[in-house]
C-alpha cells in the first residue's frame, strides 16, 4: 500500500486517460456515421509528430525532410493545442476523401472500414517517407519551469502523468457539457439518432459529421502529443497499437457512449497497470480478454444502450 499503490493508480489512470481520449474520437465518428475510422491511429501519430516539430525538434538523418527544423520553437503548452488543430485538419481531410464520397454514392457504410484504412496507410507511410522510421523523444524539459517529478502522498509522481490526467479531464468535461448542454451538441445527438430525420428538421448533417471528425482529430492530436512527451514517438507506426486498444475501450464502454468511453479507458488502463512485471508480456491480452468477455456477456458494453433488434 501507500506510495506504491498511488504510483500504480496514477500509471493506470494516465494510461487510461489516453485510451479514453482515443476511444472518444472513435465514439464521436461512430455516433454520427455508425462506422469505425481506422485512420484514427494515424491522426494520433501525426499529433505527436506535429508537437515534436512545433517545439523546435529537428528531423533525423533519414527521410526527405532530413535535418529539417522549424525556425520557431514554441513552448509545449502552445505547441500542443496547435498540433491538435493540425491533427483536426487532417481528420477533416480524411472525412472529405474517405468517408464523404461513400455517403454521396449511398454505398455500404462498412466500406469505410477499408477506405479509412487506406487513408491510414497513406498517412503512416507519408510520415515514414518524410521524417524516417526512427523514434523521437520530446525532451522532458519542454514543460518550462515545471519540475519533472513531484512528491505526492509520499510517492514520486511524474508531472507528465498529472498533466495528461488534467488535460484529459478538462477535455472530457468540456465535451460532455457540449454534447448535453448546447444546441449544436443536441444537433449532434439528433444526427446520431437518425441523419435523415435530422436533416429534415433543418440540421446540417454534413456539418455535424465534419464537426465530429474535427473534434475527434483534435482529441487524437492532443493525446498523441501528450504520449510523445510522456513516453516517446516510437516511429510512424506507434499509434496503431493505441488505436487497437482504443477500439477495445470503445466496445467495453459501449459504442457511442461518451461516459462509457471514459469508464472503459480508465478500467483498461488500471487493469494493465495491475499486471505484475513478470507477466508484462501478457499486458496486451488483458485489454482484449476483457473486451472479448464483455462482448459475449453484454454486447452493448458497460454503459451502452441495448442493441435494437429488427422484428
Amino acid at each position: 500500500m501507500g506510495s506504491d499503490f498511488i504510483q500504480l493508480l496514477l500509471n493506470g489512470l494516465s494510461l487510461g486517460a489516453v485510451y479514453a481520449l482515443f476511444a472518444l474520437g472513435y465514439t464521436l465518428v461512430f455516433s454520427v456515421l455508425g462506422v469505425i475510422n481506422f485512420a484514427h491511429g494515424a491522426v494520433f501519430t501525426l499529433g505527436a509528430y506535429f508537437t515534436y516539430l512545433l517545439i523546435g525538434g529537428a528531423v533525423g538523418a533519414n527521410g526527405l525532410l532530413a535535418g529539417f527544423q522549424l525556425p520557431i520553437a514554441l513552448p509545449f503548452w502552445l505547441a500542443l493545442p496547435l498540433a491538435g488543430l493540425g491533427a483536426a485538419t487532417v481528420a477533416l481531410l480524411i472525412e472529405r476523401l474517405a468517408f464523404r464520397p461513400l455517403r454521396e454514392r449511398n454505398a455500404d457504410p462498412l466500406l469505410a472500414l477499408i477506405t479509412s484504412l487506406g487513408a491510414g496507410v497513406v498517412l503512416v507511410n507519408l510520415i515514414q517517407l518524410l521524417v524516417g522510421a526512427e523514434s523521437y523523444a520530446i525532451p522532458s524539459g519542454s514543460l518550462g519551469g515545471l519540475p519533472v517529478a513531484i512528491q505526492l502522498f509520499g510517492a514520486q509522481v511524474r508531472t507528465v502523468q498529472l498533466l495528461l490526467l488534467l488535460v484529459a479531464t478538462v477535455l472530457l468535461a468540456a465535451l460532455s457539457l457540449w454534447i448535453d448542454g448546447t444546441r449544436s451538441g443536441k444537433a449532434l445527438r439528433a444526427v446520431s439518432e437518425d441523419p435523415t430525420t435530422a436533416q429534415l428538421l433543418g440540421i446540417n448533417s454534413h456539418r455535424m459529421v465534419q464537426i465530429a471528425f474535427g473534434l475527434s482529430g483534435f482529441l487524437a492530436g492532443l493525446a498523441g502529443g501528450l504520449v510523445g512527451l510522456s513516453v516517446s514517438l516510437a516511429g510512424p507506426y506507434f499509434g496503431i497499437g493505441y488505436g487497437l486498444k482504443g477500439l477495445g475501450v470503445l466496445v467495453l464502454g459501449g459504442l457511442g457512449s461518451v461516459p462509457g468511453a471514459v469508464l472503459g479507458g480508465l478500467l483498461i488502463g488500471l487493469a494493465e497497470a495491475c499486471v505484475p512485471a513478470a507477466w508484462s508480456g501478457y499486458r496486451e491480452v488483458v485489454a482484449y480478454g476483457v473486451l472479448f468477455v464483455v462482448l459475449l456477456v453484454r454486447p452493448q458494453g458497460l454503459l451502452g444502450k441495448p442493441l435494437a433488434t429488427k422484428v
Binding site: I36, L110, V251, Y282, V285, L291, F292, L295, P299
Partner: peptide, 27 residues
C-alpha cells in the same frame, strides 16, 4: 460464442481473438 454478435461487434470480437492469439504466441 461470437456468431451471436453482429456487424461491427463481430468484427471487433474477432480482432480481439486474433490479437489474443498473437500475443500468446509472442510470449
Amino acid at each position: 460464442l461470437v456468431l451471436r454478435l453482429r456487424g461491427i461487434y463481430l468484427a471487433i470480437a474477432t480482432i480481439a481473438l486474433v490479437e489474443i492469439l498473437r500475443v500468446t504466441t509472442l510470449n
